[in-house]
Design a protein around this nucleic acid. Sequence first.
DNA 1: CTGTTAGCGCGTTCAC
DNA 2: GTGAACGCGCTAACAG
Lengths: 338, 338
Amino acid sequence: MAATIRDIRNRTGLSLATISKYLNGGNVLPENRKAIAEAIEELHYEVNEVARGLATQKSRTIGVLIQTFDNIFMGSIVSNIERILREHNYGTIVCDCQQDKKLEEEEIHFLLGKRVDGIITIPTAGNAGYLQAAVDRKIPIVLLDRTFTDQKFDSILVDNVEAARGAVQILIDHGHTRIAIICGDDSEYTARERLRGYCTALESANIDIEASYIKRGKLSTAHGYESMKELLAMKDRPSAVFFSNYEITLGGIMAINELHVAFPQEISLIGFDNFMLSKVINPKLWMVNQPMETIAQQAAELMLKRLEESGKKGEDYEPETIILPTDMVEGESIRALS
Amino acid sequence: MAATIRDIRNRTGLSLATISKYLNGGNVLPENRKAIAEAIEELHYEVNEVARGLATQKSRTIGVLIQTFDNIFMGSIVSNIERILREHNYGTIVCDCQQDKKLEEEEIHFLLGKRVDGIITIPTAGNAGYLQAAVDRKIPIVLLDRTFTDQKFDSILVDNVEAARGAVQILIDHGHTRIAIICGDDSEYTARERLRGYCTALESANIDIEASYIKRGKLSTAHGYESMKELLAMKDRPSAVFFSNYEITLGGIMAINELHVAFPQEISLIGFDNFMLSKVINPKLWMVNQPMETIAQQAAELMLKRLEESGKKGEDYEPETIILPTDMVEGESIRALS
DNA sequence: CTGTTAGCGCGTTCAC
DNA sequence: GTGAACGCGCTAACAG
């Protein structure tokens, strides 16, 4: 159906090699250039990237494997990665594994089957095993948001410890000492880090860590919701709560609204990762904000760099770890205790 | 680097055809099956989908072209489409054109270059011109959320007129007559439809349509924000406002919060498309809700159906239009006037 | 049921 | 600068 390079040959009388050179920016006589350009125009010719991929052993496609699509966080990251890669003429195949480790490994094979030139992923699994097939293929891999301890990869992270420490410090600065955290469990890299930041802040302020103020569980709206309710029901309830991720923030706010608890009057709050919420909730929520665009940009650029390298020099390189700072969005959800 | 079908031949002594048949589910002797399976295992063989694509002239990849990634609406749709297609062994290449018509057309060519087997898209442009190249290629195209008048395509739509009519009717039922709408301008298909629904509701209740209560502009947070402020500043300000899309709802709420306007006491509100907001805003927001999962599912399934058909029968088919109903999420943001 | 032989559309040597 | 020939990895007839 679609025109091929051969149709252009028939139309121009030139050889395949000449046309190929034209397409790839080689030296071609001006008159021939013109003839080819015209033929392309008239025949609506478009390079068949599949055939080109077979010949060059490069698909000019990057696989992006994330945990879920269902939050604005992912949308922003995927969107930006996709945009930057496309500007460099790379396509993006996006998969989400729905937090399922088995699916996650399957997706890797799926992407490898498509012969992606590289993989950018936000891991769901706790270790790098599922990536082995990709590692064997020696294609660039860039990890986002979390890393592994068992194997080194290029990684783009945020400083989770510092982000959490900073959030708790703000509460301390406002005079709070009964500070709770709702966070993920030990299986979650980011949860471990953020909990560490929480503890660090309290310790350096000489505040005892109260186990019942630490609510661990899944990184879900439900966990945020339930935990917030439990905290509110305590006899010696905390005066401030740190929601340590997006879903938890959402769930926590839902519980607060449902129980008609006024904040910051009755309880002080600081959330995570939910810039939209901070604009829409009344009173405005204090919030730790991750630099989504920067994360995406760094990931895409590191990937492009690796792709370029692997064309030139030897295969091996030293994995890089880029740690980005978070920033704080001020709100009105923290009450100063005298 | 990676093993090919030839390596398996060398390993098993069988021919390429036999191995190919094995891979494609043909009849192969049990002993040979076993030998091949073992070789695949040991060599870590994975089908090269690029080569297969060249041979079959099918990429088993669908292009999804959307306007933007930056709202949860898109995330949900893309996520579900991707999941369903993958379950049928199709990959998905997602592009967003950032509401830019020129980019939109470029993306189509990009996808065609990748030889996608079909395209699912939420159009940005007002007419089907940009799709011409894809139409010429005779690949299935499914439109989401909006259609064109100049050319017929498979389309998955929601009943925008009825959705808007229903929203305004709720306000009327609560005794409101000074009802404003913040919506998009005439260039937007959905905006036209929703405005029609608004007018229909008012007319059938014999309420005069007040031009100053109709705020048209871009489908942006900024437009929602500015318009809401303007409405609140009117001498004869409306007693109720219908936010007719996601961003507008967001912007409207921001304005309300900023000006510390109490709702529903001072003004009644009903929003669109922002399920998350409805859970998190206090008091709960009334909301028109689009069935995202169903939209995505219908789109993916229609695409799969077309792909199957084009394998069998003739090329042509009669475009289908599927119109889905919206539903209403009750809240506490509407005050009953006596 | 299995092996042989052509392509699929393009990139890439080499000679010319 | 240009042209012919081969190969990328796989599928699809057709013969056996």
